[in-house]
Computed example of a mutant assay.
Amino acid sequence: MQIKDKVFVITGGGRGLGLAMARHLAEQGGILALIDLDAGVLDSAVSECRSLGGSAHAFVCDITNEAAVEATFEQIKETCGGVHGLVNNAGLMRDGMLIKVKDGELQAKMGLDQFRSVFDVNVTGTFLCTREAAAIMAVQGEGGVIVNISSVSRAGNMGQTNYSATKASVATMVVTWSGELARHGIRVGGIAPGVIATDMTAQMKPEAVERMVQAVPLRRLGEVEEMAHTLQYIIENDFFTGRIIEMDGGLRI
């Protein structure tokens, strides 16, 4: 699929990785439908994408709310004329150990809300957005592409019971949906990034960042532009489906 003049929905598109991918698609002439909870960051993201030559529109939506997602995708279809691509980028992290015990005494447990809230955004949100986007694409009859953002943590990571489980879930959805949706000409792929340099990592203590860098064979963090380039490959390669691209600098060697 060519990017120019195609409509791409990006969840969590107001900042970070979502905005970086939106900017990249805007430079290629894509039409962006950006979903986020924060109207302020969305307005800024839309202005930035338009300044790069792309068409962009903001949609404030809680992707864990079924009715809101249905209404938002109907709005996107009416505003943009359809949907050709979806990037399930929105995600939530609420890290913590399963239990904490000190001197034989139980100090803390991961709360059910802490567990469920991450699943609500990362899994339920991905499911709802994909269902609505796929329905539009299938009826349009022009094919399409869906990309789930997973993580290197999908293999399991201490302190991330909730997050790791969700990122494993969205990776398995790639395989399931690629088989189901191929008959409609819809491809489904995924990207599993390692540690990427974002506003969040920029706020971390230098020693913490250095520890992460030392774990990566390439001895650096990934760049948001490299994530965007990987997304472009999946969109433009019409024989790519049902697979996850690991974008982690060799972290899992």
Rank of each mutant, 00 (worst) to 15 (best):
G16R: 04
V188Q: 02
T79R: 13
F115C: 07
K4I: 08
G30F: 02
Q75P: 04
L86N: 01
F127M: 04
P206V: 07
I76E: 11
A192M: 09
I245W: 06
D248I: 05
D120A: 12
G82C: 04
I245F: 07
V118N: 11
H24F: 08
Q114D: 14
G81L: 02
I63R: 04
S169L: 11
A68K: 14
G185P: 03
V7Y: 04
V175S: 09
E66M: 09
E70Q: 15
G54M: 10
I136L: 12
V224M: 13
A134Q: 13
Q203K: 14
V216Q: 03
G54I: 07
L32F: 12
A45S: 06
A197Q: 12
V123C: 08
G249Q: 06
L251Y: 14
G242D: 12
S178H: 10
L32C: 13
F59I: 06
R23F: 01
I191N: 11
A197R: 08
L112I: 15
L221Y: 08
P217R: 11
M93P: 01
D62F: 06
N157Q: 14
L25G: 00
I245T: 05
I196Y: 02
V87C: 01
K6S: 09
F119S: 02
G111D: 14
G189I: 00
A197Y: 08
S117I: 03
G91K: 00
V147Q: 01
Q232S: 10
L112E: 15
T166Y: 02
R116F: 00
L231K: 01
M110I: 14
F73E: 09
V174R: 00
N162P: 10
I245R: 01
S47H: 05
Q75I: 08
G16M: 05
E246W: 06
M137V: 09
I76F: 08
G18N: 04
A22V: 01
L19W: 10
I146Y: 10
L17D: 01
Q203V: 03
I146T: 05
I31K: 15
P206C: 12
